[in-house]
Simulated assay, not measured.
Amino acid sequence: MDGHKIIKTLRHKDFIKVTHTGKCFEDGAAIYAKEIRENIFLLFIILKDIDIENIQALIAHFDCFSSIGLKEPEQIMFYLSIKDKNDLHYFEQYLKASHN
């Protein structure tokens, strides 16, 4: 599974692409967010590296949707980082499981 398939899957699951102008995330990162509870958001951050795609997933508390990408989260409750191409298989399985 590559970054394009992941982005397509996230869009299909009603994630919204967030433009970030703050210093919370690296420049060039593609950020997709979805509110899962009041002011609690599931974020997927896809960073482009020279050799691999680095995917990060987190559940975090922000004061509002518009503060994502501008401010640091008030609290991070879950964080997952995938840096190895072989680990994308497990990430793909997670996305399929969350669809059910």
Rank of each mutant, 00 (worst) to 15 (best):
M1R: 05
M1W: 07
M1C: 03
D2G: 12
G3R: 14
H4M: 08
K5L: 11
K8L: 05
K8Q: 12
K8W: 04
T9A: 11
T9P: 02
T9L: 11
L10H: 03
L10V: 11
R11P: 04
H12G: 02
H12N: 11
H12P: 01
D14L: 06
K17L: 02
K17M: 06
V18N: 01
V18Q: 01
T19E: 12
H20D: 01
F25E: 02
E26P: 03
D27K: 12
D27H: 09
D27A: 10
A29G: 01
A30V: 06
I31N: 08
Y32C: 03
Y32G: 00
A33M: 05
A33D: 07
E35I: 08
E35A: 07
I36A: 06
I36K: 13
R37T: 03
E38P: 08
E38F: 10
E38W: 06
E38Q: 15
E38L: 08
N39D: 15
N39G: 08
L43Y: 11
L43E: 11
I45F: 03
I45L: 04
I45V: 14
I46G: 01
K48D: 10
K48Y: 07
K48G: 11
D49I: 03
D49M: 09
I50M: 06
I50W: 08
D51F: 12
N54D: 10
N54I: 13
N54L: 12
N54M: 09
I55A: 00
I55V: 15
Q56H: 05
L58K: 09
I59F: 02
I59M: 01
A60E: 00
H61P: 01
H61K: 08
H61C: 04
F62I: 06
D63A: 13
F65A: 13
F65I: 06
S66R: 15
G69T: 13
L70I: 15
K71E: 14
K71C: 12
E72L: 02
P73M: 02
P73F: 06
P73I: 10
E74P: 03
Q75K: 13
Q75D: 07
Q75E: 06
I76H: 00
M77E: 12
F78K: 06
Y79R: 04
Y79W: 09
L80H: 04
S81N: 14
S81P: 04
S81E: 14
S81H: 09
K83R: 12
D84N: 13
D84K: 14
K85S: 11
K85A: 10
N86F: 08
D87K: 12
L88F: 14
H89G: 05
H89C: 05
H89L: 09
F91S: 01
F91D: 00
E92C: 04
E92L: 05
Q93T: 09
Q93M: 05
Q93W: 04
K96E: 13
K96G: 01
K96T: 06
S98K: 03
